[in-house]
Design a protein around this nucleic acid. Structure first.
Lengths: 218, 218
DNA sequence: CAAGTATTCAAGAATATTCTTGAATACTTG
DNA sequence: CAAGTATTCAAGAATATTCTTGAATACTTG
């Protein structure tokens, strides 16, 4: 193989991977799967996709070694292929959110609207661990909590939050988190709780970022 | 802004960035620019692109905040927008080369052909610094060497290598490097030199990877 | 300022991506 | 095994990307 052919083969392969990533719905699917495996139907429920279209996107992700699938009963469950990929995906997000002015602006506006501008980051969270006056609140669906969560967190899915208000003390500071920086559940939780007079902030990132950080520090 | 709108805006923005990266020629341009700034003509010289097409690709990279340009005399010089971007790009390459079996295979075949399979990595290189019996050889064009190079390296551009053979001792081990893992100059150097009976290996990565590693360790 | 050089622009053909629709397939369960 | 459910497949319309071609623009330099 000549030098030019080799280079072309490598760049073509690299471009193919990036092409597989360069679609908003596929990115959303990746974010869903970073919470744990999901069936096609499970993915469809939290996106605007039709089943057939979601399946097509999943095939593309699968052919590019981004997700893998297993079959159980009638269901096909998809999941991310490795933590190495998750780490890459999070690097992309982190870059986009901090270095692309346009995205940073959209994010800040969203957080302003939800009174969650004053977010806690993972480093700060670490200093709060074991603090009696902090309540770490996971507002993702309970399946996702069960699949994995930040140590010490309490699970109250967003749609059950209103019925559990009595469980919170107004003396404690509540830190709400969900799937990651793009996840709006934590923003909604902050909005609702702060309007009721609770001390509440959101975590800047989510469970997958915390998980990767744990892995790296070992 | 509602949750769905916010999510869509974020994923659209992210997909836009990845779309800008998902073309083999644009990736090659990025690799060129990771060696230092280049004019449009400079980029065209080492790719198969026409000037107009290279310019179009550069506009896409510029509109997506990947490269920036400055004008001097008749020339427009392009360069990467930040080291944060370079770090992201290298993460993508590293993932692709190690986790995508197809690319790993192509790479290994290329290195076999050039007798450069037994490559040195950056960590090993570090242990060799100051060793009298090692010659670190930069085979990139001299402009790129001048723009930045690994500390202690000697510059002999690939096309001048044959006329400088007498400068090398067969007792020393030669480590050749160039632009990065996809760069074939170092492979060619290993091939030529090993056929002449020199002890020679290539560096797994290239100057930009070394540079980022220096930045990270500070 | 005329001639030369580097770069960008604009339009259009060729190709690739995306989504929708209506089957087809591969299961499970009574 | 019949009926029901989850997922994939195949084809085609709508849209986006890529490259080529032939100007146009913005410089520099004698």
């Amino acid at each position: 193989m000549k030098g030019r052919e080799f280079k072309d083969a490598m760049y073509d392969g690299l471009a193919k991977l990036l092409k597989a990533l360069s679609n908003p719905f596929r990115l959303e699917i990746i974010e869903m799967l970073s919470q744990g495996e999901k069936s096609v139907e499970g993915i469809v429920q939290s996106t605007n996709l039709t089943i057939a279209n979601a399946s097509q996107h999943l095939q593309i992700l699968k052919n590019n070694n981004i997700v893998k699938s297993r079959k159980e009963k009638q269901y096909v469950y998809y999941s991310l292929v490795s933590d190495d990929f998750l780490s890459l995906y999070q690097h992309v997000i982190k870059y986009a959110v901090h270095e692309i002015a346009e995205l940073e602006k959209i994010m800040n506006r969203q957080r302003e609207d939800n009174k969650s501008l004053n977010a806690v980051n993972l480093d700060e969270l670490e200093t709060m661990i074991g603090n009696e006056n902090i309540l770490l609140l996971d507002v993702r669906p309970s399946v996702e909590f069960e699949f994995g969560h930040i140590t010490g967190a309490v699970s109250i899915p967003m749609n059950e939050l209103m019925t559990h208000l009595k469980d919170f003390s107004k003396d404690k500071e509540i830190i709400a988190y969900c799937r990651g920086p793009f996840c709006v559940l934590a923003d909604e939780a902050v909005k609702v709780l702060s309007e009721k007079g609770y001390k509440v902030r959101r975590l800047d990132e989510g469970y997958p970022e915390w998980k990767m950080k744990q892995l790296e520090s070992n």
